[in-house]
Structure formats: structure tokens, C-alpha cells
Design a protein around this nucleic acid. Structure first.
Lengths: 246, 246
DNA sequence: CGCCGACTTGAGCAATCTCAATCATGGTGG
DNA sequence: CCACCATGATTGAGATTGCTCAAGTCGGCG
């Protein structure tokens, strides 16, 4: 029974989104093993996890969980983008991260009855994998490799957050945008062309600036070989872009 | 042999600092159990860890480890403050955190041969506890409770970093200083008086502003019932301070 | 007593925000 | 198919915030 890690799981739909297969072009069924988090977890544990996993899909803007909610699931993005927000007592929301394919959303799970410290919301149609939190943390106690995977996941998150803080403290808006675009360029190519992953409103929030400031930053980058047309970007010289970030 | 968690460990001195007992007024010997990280770890594992632990002391400004170094130890602050820096390729340093008593420094350990992504440096005389990294991660694999403790530690770090990002994105310098001071006030008291934990240069770096800006922010807070004299602070109304943070 | 480092204060400047107007662009209904 | 509307993006002008440079103050320590 457990040895089959394939995801043969209930597909639940949230919101009004159409059914969509999460991996349209795969010839084999997707497996938990394909997710970075689970790459080095023992098969025994994975097959148990697979029994409990559920896929859910969300529409643009739909809440995946809310700050203050009881943590009842471990969430991994399968397809799409999820924005992670902090909501102050005054009511205003601050974007503190954006998760995409293969990333866990929110903090790593632990045994206790805890509440989310952030809200998570779908950007465009999004599918996620959910595991019951209690079950997941029990398996963590039994499987050192799962536990190690969660620690590694947490480390990755910490590294990303530290990079973010460094950027906010040491770079101006233009440099942060340059870094952002640089991270989207495929490695090893001096010139490239791609589409921005989400709209400029969101990019502005991600970089911690107002929309208008982002627009002007894009205008400045045009003088450094970065052409943009609404959502399409052409980077004429990646190395020149890298110099700007300094 | 293992069952005695007391810290009977080699005391190593780095730099030119004088020997100083890490907990001067304790009537019983300090134990690993006293450290928040280890509060719920099984005694068996703790006693094994204790055999490997070393206390080291550092002078003002001494490097505890450097960005790029191979991770060879898990470090916990016993006494003092440690600043955590990110060093850009351009050479300039950005403060990304300050650790104090009981906190782990740097990222949680994992098995692989990794390098530090940040540098750590003592602020004033500081003593830390060190465990060999390889030994520590082996014990993590054998002890679910140690592993869970590391996950919890990582979660706490993530929560702190998220709070930091929210502050940098959503608050101005005055509000960030107000939040900083608020966090130093003992809970439950409407009025309080205390001493700043480190100098204003460092507080400025922590808040992501220049020293001069911090000085002006302190001046503004004076109009809201926060009196300062060099390093001593008197908060006349904690609730009024809290309103400012909004 | 006088120096040194930490802190403060002032004046001008640069980056970013705010407010407002305008310009695409894509979807919708007639 | 086209006019229209809603939304996102751009641009401009002025206000604010925080930075830079420079001078001055303060307190401790040799």
C-alpha cells in the first residue's frame, strides 16, 4: 500500500475556477518526490504523506489562509503564485513574500496549536497541495529525513528573507528592480527575453516602493539596456544589469 | 555518564578579553536545559551535546565567523550581543540582525558541507556556546526532539525577519524607533526606565537609517514622552508610544 | 587639561511619496 | 464589430523623508 507515492488524491476546488490539471504535459503522474521539499525524504514517509495530501485550487485573490487562523494544514504551491501578507492592527497590508511552484507557504509546521502570523492569497489561478498539519508534524517526529527536509526548507526561507532585508537596507529602488529582473534572467545567457511573472502593482509591493516609483525605475533601466513593453522584458546585457545592483 | 547535563566544558578564550564567568550569580551550574532552544529536548541527547559543547569568549568587534567560511559549529549566545552582517561583493556591510542571550547565531545546521551566508561579530565582550556542526546534525537525525527544537528555532527566526521586513516596508524611521523602544519596555508597565542595549550607531544600523536620522527621530520622540540621556531612556507613557507605531 | 569618539544639530540635496491627469489595454455589451 | 468602461501603467509637479556634508557639543579618559 505505502510504496506508491503517486498523487492519487482528492481534487478539491475552491472558488469559481475551472478544473485544470496541475501538470498538463507530464507523461507520468506527478509525485511528491518531484517537489523540492521532499527530494530526500524516505519513501515510506512520502507514501504515508501521499495518502493524506489534497490538491486545492484557488481563484485570483482567494484567501488560502488568514493571519490569526489556526494552522491546520501544510501548504505547498503546485502551480501559480501566492502572495504572503502581514496585516497590521491599523488594517494596512504589507507584502512580505511571494511563493511560487514547489515552495511551502507560511512557516514550517510544529506540533503545538498555533496560528498563522501571515495571510496567504492566490495571485491568479493557483493550485496548492495541502497536508493536515497534525498528521504532518507527527510524521516529522517519526521521520528524521522529513524533519531534516523541513529544516532545510526553513533555512532557504531564512536566506531569502535575509537577502530581502539586505536589499531594503542597502539598495535604492532602481537597484532593487535591477536585482529583481536579474533574478528572472535564465543563468548563463548574456541576453534574454521573458515575461514578468505578475503585474507591476505586485512587483512594486514586492520591492517596497509605490507603483509610480517602480514605473520611473523601469524608465531609468531603459537607459541601461532593459526594454519593457507592458509585461514583456528584453534584457540586452545581463552583465551590465548586474553591475547596477552593486 | 550521560545523564549529567551540567556544562562541564572547556573554556576557550578568543581575543584579549579577561576570563569572566558566564553566569556570575547562579548558585547551580548552568545547564543546556536553561537555553530556550533546548527546553524540550530529551535528556539523553542533551547530555551527549554537553560533552561536545565549548564556551568561547570574544572581545568587542571580534569575528565569531565570517561569511563564506565553512560551517563548522552551531553557535548560541550565552552573554552579550552579536551582530549579524551581510557583506556585498562591493564590500559594504549591512546589518541584518542582532542576537542576544539564548539565541542561535546564523542559520540552523544541516548535514551538508555548507558555508555561512552571513558574518557574525561580537558587540562588546561576549560569550557563546559552540557545538561541532557535524556532531550536532548527526544528533538531529537521531533525536526527533532536537530536530523539532531546531525547527522551532528556525520558525522564531523567520517570524522575526518577517516582522523586520514589515517594519522596513510599512514604517518610517520614527515609527521604527518607537517600535524598537517599545520592544525594550517591560510588559505590563505604563511607565519605565532602562538603558539602551548598545550604542546608537548600532541602533541606527538595526533600524536601517543613518546615525543623524536616528538622532532626529529621538528628538521627535521627546515630544511624545520619551526622554533620553545619552544611553538612558525614560518612557513616560508606553501606550502613547504604542500609538505612534500604528 | 585636552583629546577622542560618540552624539547632536544645521543646511542643502536626492530619493521617494502623494496627488492628479493622462494614456494604454483588455473585456463587455450593444 | 465597435464604443465604452474598468483597470493598470505612465508621467508631471510639488511635498516629505531621509541622506550627505559639515560644524559643533558632550562626556570620559589618558
Amino acid at each position: 500500500m505505502h510504496g506508491d507515492i503517486a498523487l492519487e488524491i482528492a481534487q478539491t476546488r475552491k472558488g469559481r475556477v475551472n478544473r485544470r490539471s496541475s501538470r498538463a504535459t507530464l507523461s507520468e503522474p506527478p509525485t511528491l518526490r518531484d517537489l523540492r521539499l521532499f527530494a530526500s525524504v524516505d519513501s515510506e514517509t512520502l507514501s504515508r504523506l501521499a495518502l493524506e495530501a489534497k490538491v486545492e485550487t484557488f481563484d485570483e485573490g482567494a484567501a488560502i489562509f488568514r493571519q490569526g487562523d489556526l494552522v491546520n494544514a501544510v501548504v505547498i504551491v503546485l502551480h501559480g503564485y501566492v502572495k504572503v501578507l502581514r496585516i497590521a492592527s491599523s488594517g494596512d497590508e504589507t507584502l512580505v513574500g511571494i511563493c511560487s511552484d514547489g515552495e511551502t507557504v507560511g512557516e514550517p509546521p510544529s506540533g503545538a496549536n498555533e496560528t498563522y502570523r501571515v495571510s496567504a492569497e492566490a495571485i491568479g489561478p493557483t493550485s496548492v497541495l495541502k497536508f493536515p498539519a497534525a498528521r504532518f508534524s507527527r510524521l516529522m517526529k517519526e521521520s528524521p529525513s522529513l524533519c531534516a527536509a523541513v529544516v532545510q526548507d526553513a533555512k532557504d526561507k531564512i536566506a531569502a528573507l535575509v537577502t530581502e532585508i539586505e536589499a531594503l537596507k542597502a539598495q535604492n529602488a532602481d537597484q532593487r528592480l535591477a536585482s529583481f529582473i536579474l533574478a528572472l534572467c535564465p543563468p548563463g545567457e548574456e541576453q534574454c527575453r521573458f515575461r514578468l511573472p505578475y503585474d507591476k502593482r505586485l512587483i512594486a509591493a514586492r520591492l517596497g516602493v509605490k507603483q509610480e516609483t517602480l514605473s520611473r525605475a523601469f524608465a531609468k533601466l531603459r537607459e541601461h539596456g532593459v526594454r519593457t513593453e507592458t509585461r514583456d522584458v528584453l534584457v540586452e546585457s545581463v552583465s551590465r544589469l548586474a553591475e547596477l545592483c552593486d
